[in-house]
């Protein structure tokens, strides 16, 4: 069974430790601009939303990639980038509906969550329970399916006018 990052948005306190540990793990530096996870924050409303790659089964970024550099790694249930093939066109950045793919301005490459090769540091450091890396239990699977279903359904909603 594969594990995945499950995010409980209500539990996020907006501390951004996940951003820090992510950039340290991957780049050896603290720089939220180079983190694979990001917190969208509305200060005046007290709203914080962690945004991270959802490792979609049928990922828009994978289908959008013109060099097949983005692909699914079924072993860890994630979407990865083959940097040998990536031409940095950033089509995946545009295609991701969650805004979860970042462009690293210093390394000049697209970055998105790689689950730290199986031990995501964000989940390890997040003690609030907002980010957890857990087995895809039935309950979660259901929730995911529902979300994916909504997305898919809305994508396949017939466009008006039904021309054909």
């Amino acid at each position: 069974m594969t594990k995945q990052l499950v995010i409980d948005y209500e539990k996020c306190t907006g501390c951004r430790l996940c951003e820090m540990v992510c950039s340290v793990k991957h780049e050896g530096v603290v720089n939220p601009a180079r983190s694979r996870i990001n917190i969208a924050k509305w200060e005046t409303k007290g709203l914080t939303v962690p945004v991270v790659c959802r490792q979609c089964e049928d990922a828009p970024c994978v289908s959008a990639c013109p060099t097949n550099a983005r692909m699914r790694d079924e072993e860890l249930g994630r979407v990865i980038v083959n940097y040998d093939r990536c031409i940095g066109c950033k089509t995946c950045v545009v295609a991701c509906p969650f805004g979860a793919i970042n462009w690293d301005p210093l390394a000049r490459k697209v970055i998105s969550c790689d689950l730290c090769d199986g031990e995501p540091q964000c989940a390890r450091f997040c003690e609030t329970g907002a980010i957890r890396f857990i087995e895809v239990s039935t309950a979660n699977k259901d929730r995911q399916r529902e979300a994916a279903g909504q997305l898919l359904e809305s994508m396949q909603k017939p466009v008006q006018p039904a021309a054909r």
């Binding site: 950033k90 950045v93 545009v94 295609a95 969650f98 994508m155 909603k157």
Partner: peptide, 16 residues
């Protein structure tokens, strides 16, 4: 520049 938030708009478009 930064196009990170374009994806959501794209889906808003698709979903009308």
């Amino acid at each position: 520049g930064n196009a990170r938030d374009m994806g959501a708009m794209l889906y808003a478009l698709i979903k009308h």
